[in-house]
Design a binder for these strands. Structure first.
Lengths: 205, 205
DNA sequence: AGTGATACTGTATAAAAATATAGCTAGCGC
DNA sequence: GCGCTAGCTATATTTTTATACAGTATCACT
């Protein structure tokens, strides 16, 4: 089986999560919305590559005719650990593992799990080592006060979202930390998802 | 749930078999071919009936937007809400519902879920409304420092356990609350379980 | 410097799928 | 005999979906 590029494995991971969540394979248009493509052909060509490399099967002329090639029946959600600056979230190398968590447990449905680092959200009851359930959906605009996974100039961080025109504030929930100020015209800001749930297991209790 | 006619259950059975077989829900045209209808509307109206009677869900405007309504098999763990003093934990009347959580997600395995009330464990990152995964096992003796669900003189409470001979302390994690002192010879103490995980979903974030 | 791959935008278009409307027949209850 | 429902036929029409074709920018090879 051919190697996937980071972007390709990100897309494959999303398709897997989506299918685990509501069983229907996505259409090109749905993929387009999720990744904020402006052309359905971006989705189409990615699917072609995934099919050529043997990760999926495409039934031609069939709506939603995407099938996952068996592999190790990916059930549950991937747990992402430390993400290196600039690298896509769902790339294989940051995966700590796979947890048997039903994506539908959270609403509006989770796409991946993220291990929290640091205490910047302590007062919101989110501690170092906790696991967040995250919904990744480019079409989802965060509401003020909502907790988001954001990437500012390459670095991934979890904070509370507050927007004021071209100015975005990423607010910690711990007086020992300072808010991050993001100027949408100057800084690069990517929303890697909104937090839809929290999970604490094992030693963290 | 409404009764189905023989024809209707024949069609429902076919849809179920089809979805188990190749995971894609059928289109109206596929149903038409399978049952030798000469009009897609025959399929359409059958689907409408099955949806109205609650056996399937139809997502309108969506190719293959058919979803089976899971026959309520008790999967997951029961979620317990406010427990009245003196009443058993798992009595029907305190059950808020059933969540699709894999008990094996937690180790050493959870037996039920409990909705937290109050802020007495705030500094341990457990907030009002959070859901705890609890292991109930009579043979399990709590270790000092472990979080337990205990019942003192009828009242259920979540605290950190500390034992010193005949004296047990139930310690909150919030300076606004006072430790509960329990004399094993004088007071009635039942251990309703040890906390093995935490779950936060929906509005609590 | 040239070639090919990745990762897209932008615009079409045909096929697939959902869905509306207007029937028709047989059986049941009253 | 009348109204009602189940179970269809037949024909359209609109939306969704798949998919082709023509580009652009970037990067890695060679």
């Amino acid at each position: 089986m051919d190697e996937l590029t980071p972007r390709q494995s990100e897309i494959l991971a999303w398709i897997r999560a989506r299918m685990a969540e509501d069983s229907l394979p996505p259409t090109r248009a749905e993929l387009m919305r999720a990744f904020d493509f402006r052309s359905p052909n971006a989705a189409e060509s990615h699917l072609r590559v995934l099919a050529r490399k043997g990760y999926i099967l495409l039934q031609s002329g069939t709506a939603r005719g995407i099938r996952l090639c068996a592999s190790e029946e990916e059930t549950g959600l991937p747990l992402i650990g430390r993400v290196a600056a600039g690298q896509p979230m769902l790339a294989e190398e940051f995966r700590e593992g796979q947890l048997p968590v039903d994506p539908k447990l959270f609403s509006p449905g989770a796409d991946y799990l993220l291990r929290v680092q640091g205490m910047s959200m302590r007062d919101a009851g989110i501690l170092d080592g906790d696991i967040l359930a995250v919904r990744h959906d480019a079409s989802l605009t965060p509401q003020d006060g909502q907790m988001v996974v954001a990437r500012v100039n390459g670095e991934v961080t979890v904070k509370r979202w507050k927007r004021d025109g071209k100015q975005v504030w990423l607010l910690p929930e711990n007086p020992d930390f300072s808010p991050i100020s993001v100027d949408l015209q100057r800084d690069s800001l990517t929303i890697e998802g909104v937090v839809v749930g929290l999970l604490r297991i094992g030693g963290n209790l």
